[in-house]
Amino acid sequence: MNDVVLYTVLSLTGIGLLAAVVLYYVSKKFHVTEDERIARVEAVLPNTNCGGCGQPGCHAFAEAVVKSGDLSVLHCPVGGNPVMKQVAEVLGVKTVEKDPYIAVVRCSGSFEYRKKTNVYDGAPSCAIAAQLYSGDTGCAYGCLGMGDCVVACDFEAMYMDEKTGLPVIIEDKCTACNACVKSCPKDILELWPKGKKNQRIYVACLNEEKGSTARKECAVACSGCAKCAEACRYEAITIDHNLAAIDPDKCKLCAECIDTCDVRNIIATNFSPEKLLQASEHRQKREERERKKREEEKAKAATAATNPETPA
């Protein structure tokens, strides 16, 4: 009996020792030396592995950023400037400030405004519906409302509003990782500069149909009437394919365009009502001035035409 115990203990100890030696040898032999800065960069990153930076994950980002040492291209949208500052400290390079972005929903066609023209009964996925047909409403550009974007969001920063059928972005949680943008087959979601004081202005419509057709499809569709473009002092609004588009780089957030839209589909976030009212009055006064000026010029031109003797 004692022999059995002895042999068991001896053989197990032997196996243990042998394994330890082999493991030690293998770990020495195949040791990979990695730049220790990679680990330090990784430590300051959010480690959400969302892929928003364009790299497969946070480790890959750390590797890439250590290798290139250039912070102007590689940027972690989730961590934003504070994290990138820390990364810069680790690498000992100058930090590059980038404006934070946020995802915006560029469709306002809620149930109320955009009537259903048929009932979709396929698998509940926007991607599948989008390859089947143009959608269950008249508008071929609008949100399909099955929430592929909500599924794609790793940060629980989105939900589908049951009353409108449109996705809603929770400002504080959105990290601009781009996942929802990639998931949307209709390109409704777009990354937009977060803006000073979280204020931003964008057109919540993508319908490129002619005005009359677009309005038939959706009561708040942009008809491309160009009133907003005319009102803009900074030429930030252009009309292309019957659709108004705001250039966020040129937009000065003056908000004077907001009430030119007869369907109120230029969205201004985090503006106080007073500010919007002020902007509206401002624009009206300016337009009044410009109109008067034009009339005066017209009158002048008219008098000039009737009195040809007047010296030029």
Binding site: T117, N118, V119, Y120, D121, G122, A123, L132, Y133
Partner: peptide, 8 residues
Amino acid sequence: SLLTVAPS
């Protein structure tokens, strides 16, 4: 009433 649409 509205027609139903689904993939085949």
